[in-house]
C-alpha cells in the first residue's frame, strides 16, 4: 500500500510538472505544482483504495481538491504567486480526460446505432461518462476554488 501510494504521488508530480509547462508558469512554480499534485493525488488514491476507505471517485476528488486548494493558498502566499498558478496545474492529473472522450465516443456510437438495444447501451455509456466527468470536474473546481474564496484576504494578497 505504501509503495503504491508513493508511486502514485511520484507519477502525479511528474504529470503535473509536465502539464504545467503548457500553461507557462514562472520557473519557481514547478516545484510547488509537483508537491501539491503529489499530495492531492496520493490522498485521493488512499481515499479510493478498498483497503482504506474505498470512497467513490467523486467525493474522493472533492476532498483531495480541497486539500490541494488549502495547501495552494498557503504556498502561494509564501512564494508570491497567485494561488491559481500552483493550484490549476496541480489539479490537472485529476482531470477526467478518459471519461470526457468516452462520453464523446458514446455519443458517436449512439448516432451510428442500428438497433434499439445498441442505442440504449451506448446512451447509457454517454450518460454515465458525461455525468461522471462533469461531477468530477465540478468537485475539482469547487474543492480547489473554495479555499481561495474562504481565505480571500490571503489569496488575493499573495503577490504583494
Amino acid at each position: 500500500m505504501l509503495y503504491q501510494t508513493l508511486q502514485d504521488a511520484l507519477f502525479a508530480a511528474i504529470a503535473a510538472t509536465g502539464f504545467a509547462a503548457i500553461s507557462n508558469p514562472p520557473r519557481q512554480a514547478y516545484i510547488y505544482c509537483a508537491i501539491l499534485a503529489a499530495c492531492g493525488h496520493a490522498f485521493r488514491f488512499i481515499l479510493m483504495s478498498a483497503s482504506f476507505a474505498g470512497i467513490n471517485i467523486i467525493p474522493a476528488t472533492l476532498i483531495a481538491a480541497l486539500t490541494i486548494g488549502f495547501l495552494a493558498v498557503l504556498m502561494a502566499s509564501h512564494a508570491r504567486f497567485p494561488a491559481e498558478t500552483c493550484l490549476f496545474p496541480s489539479l490537472l492529473p485529476m482531470i477526467p480526460g478518459v471519461y470526457a472522450y468516452k462520453a464523446f465516443g458514446g455519443l458517436a456510437l449512439c448516432l451510428f446505432s442500428e438497433s434499439s438495444g445498441g442505442f440504449t447501451t451506448n446512451f447509457y455509456l454517454l450518460a454515465y461518462n458525461s455525468l461522471t466527468c462533469c461531477a468530477i470536474l465540478l468537485c475539482m473546481v469547487v474543492g480547489g476554488t473554495l479555499p481561495i474564496f474562504i481565505l480571500k484576504k490571503i489569496s488575493f494578497q499573495a503577490t504583494r
Partner: peptide, 14 residues
Amino acid sequence: ILVTIANAAFCRLF
C-alpha cells in the same frame, strides 16, 4: 520534453 514525460507518467497513473 516535459509534456511527453508527463503523459507517460499519466499513462502509468491509469
